[in-house]
Amino acid sequence: MEVAVYNIQGSDTGKKINLSEAVFGLETPNDHAIYMDVKQYLANQRQGTSKSKERGEVHGTGKKPYRQKGTGNARQGDRKSPLWRHGGRIFGPKPRDYSFRLNKKIKVLARSSALTYKAKEENVRVLENFNFEAPKTKQFLDLLNGMEAQDKKVLLVTGDVQKNVYLSGRNLPKASVLPASQLNTFAILNADLLVLTEDAVNFINQREEN
């Protein structure tokens, strides 16, 4: 699958680049693999640090509030019972790890399926390799305007880490920049337009095919 290569002004350079059919052209994208990969990504983002105190952890006396019998009230052992105000919480949350492992082949299939959907929807754009001499948000905005994507959620994928490009787009709420090695299914699906540099395309083609 060949697509045109654009420059950062949004003009067609006349060059073509091949998007691997094994990555961007699956006949039957696997929705369940996408679901599992996105589920794992979101689970891995959870801190899992929520915590509430149980009856053995709250501050309070262990003294029996009143005698066992003869008051007409239900019997009580101490004021730290969950039935009392300021008592402990029953089955409250505890720190835990929400992350889980996922087979590498499923993750590869999920990324390829997500990339296939983007390609079928014609929401993949390829830019020639570029870099910014210094972090300039205005340059990044000019790049988005050249692609007529200023109102879209854009994911720009570079071949390697380009600090100046990343810093230029960091303050824009609808734009994000990732190196190709960190590209994931969630980021692909979360973007309206996927913009790849030539080096990023070559990296993705090689990684997913192997």
Rank of each mutant, 00 (worst) to 15 (best):
M1F: 05
Y6R: 08
N7D: 15
D12F: 04
T13Y: 08
V23W: 09
V23I: 14
F24S: 03
L26C: 10
P29K: 03
N30Q: 13
I34Y: 04
Y35R: 00
M36N: 11
D37V: 08
V38M: 13
Q40M: 14
L42Q: 11
K51H: 12
E54H: 13
E57D: 09
G60D: 07
K63Q: 11
P65Q: 07
R67Y: 09
R75I: 05
R75V: 05
Q76E: 09
D78Q: 10
R79D: 08
K80Y: 09
K80L: 05
S81T: 07
S81A: 15
P82S: 09
G88L: 00
I90M: 01
G92L: 01
D97Y: 07
S99G: 14
F100V: 06
K105H: 11
K107R: 12
K107V: 11
L109N: 10
A110S: 09
S113D: 08
L115E: 06
T116N: 08
K118D: 10
A119V: 01
E122V: 07
R125P: 00
L127I: 00
E128G: 15
F130E: 04
D142C: 03
L144N: 10
N145C: 10
M147N: 13
Q150V: 15
L155E: 09
G159S: 02
D160V: 10
V161P: 01
V161K: 13
K163V: 09
R170T: 04
R170I: 08
N171L: 04
N171D: 11
A175Q: 06
A175R: 02
P179M: 05
T185Y: 01
A187I: 11
L189I: 06
D192T: 05
L193C: 02
E198K: 15
Q206H: 14
Q206I: 06
